[in-house]
Computed example of a mutant assay.
Amino acid sequence: MRFTTRTIAYMAMLVALNIILTRFFSVRIPFEGVDGIRLGFGSLPLVLGGLMLGARAGFLIGVIGDLAGFAISPSGLYLPTFTLAAGLHGWLAGILTRRPWSEIATWQIYLAIGISQGVVSLLITPTLLSLHFALPFWLTLPGRLASQAILIPCYCVLIGVLLQRLSWILPYSVKCRSLSRQ
C-alpha cells in the first residue's frame, strides 16, 4: 500500500497528538523509580490511526510517535521493545477492523479498541516492565486494570464521536458509515 500525501498528513497530525498527549498531558505513577503506570490519552491517536488509516499506518504512527517523543522528552533509558509496543496499539486496532468501513459495525470498532488496549496495556507493557526493570507483573496489574476500566470506555466514546465528526473530511476509503446507522 502506498501512502498518499493526505494520509501522510493525517499520520503526522496523529503522531504530534500522540507526543503531546503521552509526554506532556499524562500522569505518571512510579513504582520503585520506574514509571509503572501512565494515565492519559496518549494511545488514543494510535488506535484512531489504526482504525482510520489501516494497520500499517497505525503501527508507523506508534513507532514514529514513540521515537520522536523520546527525542523531545526522554524519560530514562530508551528501550526499543516499548517502541514496538506503542506500534502494536495502532497495528492491532487496524488489523482487527481491516474490512471496508461500510461493513464495520460500531461494536466491532469498540471490540478492536478493547482488544488493542487490553493486549498492549494489560499484558505486553507489564511484561516488558518486569523483564527490563524487574518490576513484578502483579504489582502493576491492579492499577492497570483500574485505569483501563476507565480509559477503554472513554476511548470508545471519543473515537466514536471523532469518526462521526471527521467523516466529512476523511477520504472516501476511510469513511465509517456504520457509526451513523446506529
Rank of each mutant, 00 (worst) to 15 (best):
I109F: 03
G62A: 07
Y155I: 14
G114D: 11
I124C: 04
W107Q: 06
V157K: 09
R144S: 13
A105L: 01
T97N: 13
I95E: 07
G54W: 05
L131P: 01
D66Y: 09
G40D: 15
L84F: 15
R38M: 13
K175I: 01
L21I: 02
V120Y: 13
F82E: 13
S43R: 12
I29P: 02
G58F: 07
P45V: 04
T125I: 15
T127F: 14
A55E: 03
L158V: 14
L96C: 02
F133I: 12
G54R: 07
Q117K: 12
H89V: 03
S116R: 12
G160A: 08
M1S: 11
A16Q: 02
G54Q: 10
L151D: 09
G50R: 15
L122F: 04
V27D: 04
G42T: 11
M11Q: 10
I95S: 07
F70W: 15
L67V: 10
A146I: 14
L166H: 06
A112L: 05
V120M: 13
L166N: 01
S116C: 09
Q164N: 07
W138V: 11
S102D: 00
V15A: 06
S43N: 15
M52Y: 04
G49D: 10
A86K: 11
G33R: 03
A93I: 09
R144A: 15
L179T: 01
M13S: 07
V63C: 14
V63N: 03
F25D: 01
H132E: 12
P45F: 08
L158D: 02
M52L: 01
I29C: 04
S121G: 15
I8E: 00
L48R: 05
V161C: 06
S121D: 15
T81Y: 15
S121C: 11
R99L: 00
P74G: 07
G58I: 08
L129T: 12
I150H: 14
L135C: 09
